[in-house]
Design a protein around this nucleic acid. Structure first.
Lengths: 210, 210
DNA sequence: CGAGCTGTTGACATTGCTCAAATTTCGTGG
DNA sequence: CCACGAAATTTGAGCAATGTCAACAGCTCG
């Protein structure tokens, strides 16, 4: 991307702050903006008519949000922490993308990565036990964080409810499984939102590969 | 796409026949070819080390297969029926795609559609009951088939085992749920691989929206 | 200090799984 | 076309993992 392109991009972005728990957009809503997360953590989810929720992913700093081709969002998005978004009108963005091939390449790659992650999650939801699911989840978070976190210490910004809705479980099962893993010595729980994995090898084994 | 492009495309495709049950490629294998399905039905799946299987999708005539960006396939693929494939070397294909913008656009759209389908499947796997899953599955198949099948009659080329591995259930649960739905009058089962949905409205209701 | 979350734990219910057997379907050879 | 064996499907009985409902504990914020 050269300077001219960067200028064009800068011209169409603006800023948006979201409080924790606030909806960024809802499933089915007409898609007007796409976002890049400057700061904070976001959950994506789908709902059934009776309120059952499946969280389809967690996003963090640097991730893109709402890049859809048809006119509505396929899922809802909510801030889990204070979030700063860099927002772009989809119409402007599409026009821009059409002109900058490397960006389109990147977009396709990102989309394929997301798809691979979604398929991994299907395997988790369809075929793993609660214990394997939770361990896989922790390993996955650890992989993503690995850059800044030095050892196997992990911060979980989301609530037990969010974890449950991500793994297709209830909060009680998540809580019990955390306790069981702690009692086995596979994990440590210094506080509710912090997990330490002292035996990575054993955890990988017990998660059913990952 | 103009004639020149079509010629270039024709120059790099070749043909491959696969027998039912044969592996087309395996997860983790180095990705050499991408395919388009000329005829037949294919299942995509991921495996756990102990053999548990999650089918991530069923593909049919016209669908693309193995379009990956990194060097290995993210899932395995097997023929469910006799399959005819139109195969292309990924290296050639990538070079070609780089030159034909509309094809790339199409590819990105397809990838996004697949992602939306994957998220819908996560909702199904994580939050729906066996009954809702099976009904959702039937409605989904019906939607896809809708073009040629006149009424609500549906052919299921896959085995009960495949359906179970797609829905994250066991074959026994699939079988029992089929029977229960038949006894309730929500579906008819003229034979094992044929389902009739005489009350589409009621089915949609019972599937938890779709 | 009390109200209201969030998370944990307990007792029990239920869905879906496991193991086993009966039944049907289907391919193959006579 | 029929018979036979193998495979797929269905059905049954009991069980285990996970869900439901309820009580309790810990923390945060006014």
């Amino acid at each position: 991307m050269d300077f001219k392109d960067i200028d064009r991009l800068a011209a169409i972005v603006s800023h948006r702050d979201i409080d924790p728990g606030q909806v960024i957009f809802e499933e089915g809503e007409t898609a007007e903006y796409a976002y890049n997360i400057s700061r904070g953590e976001v959950r994506l989810y789908k709902l059934l008519p009776d309120g059952r929720r499946q969280i389809t992913g967690f996003l963090g700093e640097g991730d893109f949000l709402g890049l859809v081709s048809d006119s509505t969002y396929a899922y809802g998005a909510e801030a889990m922490t204070p979030v700063e978004l860099c927002s772009m009108r989809l119409t402007n963005l599409e026009r821009l993308l059409a002109d900058i091939p490397p960006v389109r390449e990147k977009l396709l790659d990102m989309s394929r990565d997301e798809l691979a992650a979604a398929q991994e999650q299907m395997l988790l939801l369809g075929r793993k036990t609660a214990r394997e699911q939770l361990l896989s989840f922790l390993l996955h978070r650890l992989d993503q964080a690995e850059s800044d976190a030095p050892e196997s210490k992990l911060h979980l910004p989301m609530s037990r409810t969010d974890i449950a809705d991500y793994l297709g479980l209830t909060i009680e099962t998540v809580s019990r499984t955390f306790t069981a893993l702690r009692d086995e010595g596979l994990i440590e729980l210094p506080d509710t939102h912090t997990v330490v994995l002292p035996e990575l090898e054993a955890v990988r084994e017990a998660a059913g590969a990952f």
